[in-house]
Design a binder for these strands. Structure first.
Lengths: 165, 165
DNA sequence: TATTGTTATACTCTATAACTATA
DNA sequence: TATAGTTATAGAGTATAACAATA
C-alpha cells in the first residue's frame, strides 16, 4: 500500500465533501487519523491546482526549502528528511536541476556524495512559491484564530507512531 | 499532481523523521498544511503495515464503515463521500465483493444503480479492522490528553480550502 | 563490507475517455 | 440528454533490486 496519494484535479467528477449531510460516518468521526486524512484531502486539490503552474509539487517544494535552509545538504540526507526513497530523490533532484533551480556540487572528502545548493534562479522561484503557499495556507486556516492555528500545529507535532524502540 | 500518496513500507531505506536535529526547516515549520502532511506521513507507515494483513487499505476501510452505517448506499454516493473517482470506486467494490465482504444489490426503481450492503462476513471483518484501527489511533494520539485530542479533531474539521463561491 | 548515488523495472493508484444500460 | 456503472488505457509516484564508484 502507499500513502493516500493525493489526487490530481478531477474534471467532471466528484468534489470531495468532508461531511456529506445525512451520511452516518460511524467510527470515522472518532479517529484522529481520519480527521488528518480528511484535512489533507480537502487541502490537496487546491494545492495541486495552484502549484502546478509553478511546476512545483510538495516534495519539490520541501526539497527547495530544505536546500535553501541547509545549503550543501547531501541527497541522502535530504531523502531521509522528507521521507522519500533514494531513487525518488534522484528523480526530484534531476528535475530541480533541469529547471536550473538546483546544482549538484562535489563534496570535498567524499567523492561519492552530492552537495545540493540553490541557484540564483532557484532562490527567486522558491520565493514566489513560498509566497503562494503561505497565502494558500492562510486560506485553509482562515476559520481558525491565530491562537487556534498555533494550537493545531503544536498538537499535530505531538502526533506520531509510537517510537520503534 | 496527486495527493502525497502515502508510502508503502520501505525496507532498507529511510525512516521518516519529522524533525531531524540540526536541520533548518524554514517556512515548512510555519505552514499548517505541512504539519498535516508530516503527521499523515508519520502515521501512514504504521497504518499500512498493520492493515496489510487484514487486506484493508484506508479507502477500503472507509468504504466498509460507510456501507455499514449507510446500508444501501449507491456506489456513486460512496465515491463522492470518500473522494475517489468512479473507476476507482468500481475497483474498490470489486475487491470488497471478491473478499465476500460486500454485496451489490439491485435498486428498485433505478436499474442502473447498485445498492451496497455488508455481508455477515464483512461485518465481522470490519469489526476486527475497527478494533485495530482504534488501537492504532490511540497510539498515535497517546501523547495527547483526551481534551487535546478532541481539540485537535475539532480544529482539523475547520481546516479546508476556501469555498469556491 | 558499507554507503552514495544511479539505473532499470514492476507495481499501485489515479485520471481520462469511451462505452452500456438505463433514466 | 443526463446519469450509474463499467472497461481500457495511460500517467504519476513509489518500491525493489542491481549496479558503479568510493569509503
Amino acid at each position: 500500500m502507499s500513502l493516500p496519494r493525493p489526487r490530481k484535479t478531477r474534471k467532471g467528477a466528484l468534489p470531495f465533501d468532508r461531511h456529506v449531510p445525512g451520511i452516518e460516518y460511524g467510527v470515522l468521526d472518532q479517529l484522529a487519523g481520519y480527521a488528518i486524512r480528511r484535512a489533507q484531502i480537502a487541502i490537496y486539490e487546491e494545492l495541486d491546482r495552484e502549484l502546478s503552474p509553478l511546476k512545483i509539487t510538495p516534495p519539490r517544494f520541501s526539497s527547495l526549502v530544505l536546500i535553501e535552509g541547509n545549503p550543501g545538504v547531501l541527497q541522502t540526507e535530504l531523502a531521509r528528511i522528507i521521507g522519500v526513497g533514494g531513487p525518488a530523490m534522484v528523480a526530484i533532484v534531476d528535475y530541480l536541476q533541469a529547471q536550473g533551480w538546483v546544482r549538484r556540487e562535489a563534496h570535498d572528502g567524499d567523492r561519492r556524495a552530492n552537495r545540493l545548493v540553490l541557484t540564483t534562479k532557484g532562490r527567486a522561484h522558491l520565493q514566489r512559491a513560498k509566497e503562494l503557499l503561505m497565502k494558500l495556507d492562510a486560506g485553509w486556516t482562515s476559520r481558525l484564530s491565530s491562537s487556534e492555528r498555533a494550537t493545531l500545529m503544536a498538537l499535530l507535532d505531538k502526533v506520531a507512531p509510537p517510537l520503534a524502540t
